[in-house]
């Protein structure tokens, strides 16, 4: 056995596992992850504990999705504040709701297949949601999604 190994070595044919293609494999994986990565662009400032549901559908085209967060404000020290609406980076109070239609209208111009994903906290009240939906109707962004988790 030992002799055989030595013989091979001296002949210079087989020098163990070929590592030359390893960078290629790694690069392939790297490119896959680079392509699939969507960098988190916004920091969510409200708590959105999503409800659980059974009748779920998946949204595969994430590029069409625009998120609207509704939930209690996260305050320092693990405290929760009043319920607010967040779109992109902007937090909105009730008086500012009419600006939602402009934001959504602009987004719809850019992407006609827009789906608005409403990420609403379980404790939120229907009034605020209905107000937001009214604004979405004004902007004619009619495809919505009540984001929910799979029921355990």
């Amino acid at each position: 056995m030992n002799q055989k190994f030595q013989k091979k070595r001296t002949s210079g044919e087989d020098k163990g596992i070929p590592v030359a293609s390893m960078p290629d494999i790694i690069f392939m994986l790297l490119i896959f992850f680079m392509v699939t990565t969507v960098l988190r662009e916004t920091e969510v400032q409200v708590r959105t504990q999503l409800p659980q549901a059974e009748a779920l559908t998946k949204i595969e085209q994430r590029r069409f999705v625009s998120n609207v967060w509704i939930g209690p404000l996260r305050l320092p020290g693990n405290q929760l504040g009043e319920t607010r609406v967040q779109i992109d980076d902007a937090l909105m109070e009730e008086e500012e709701f009419p600006t939602i239609r402009n934001i959504m209208y602009r987004k719809l111009q850019e992407e006609p297949r827009l789906i608005v994903s409403l990420r609403v906290d379980v404790t939120a009240e229907m009034g605020i949601l209905v107000d937001v939906q009214e604004e979405l109707r004004e902007a004619n962004t009619l495809r919505i999604n009540y984001s929910s988790r799979q029921q355990q």
Binding site: A53, A55, L56, T57, R62, L142, R143, S147, S148
Partner: peptide, 15 residues
Amino acid sequence: VTTIDMDTGIGMTLP
């Protein structure tokens, strides 16, 4: 940094 979690939810169309 990759998040592959797909958004799931109840789809609706507003009138």
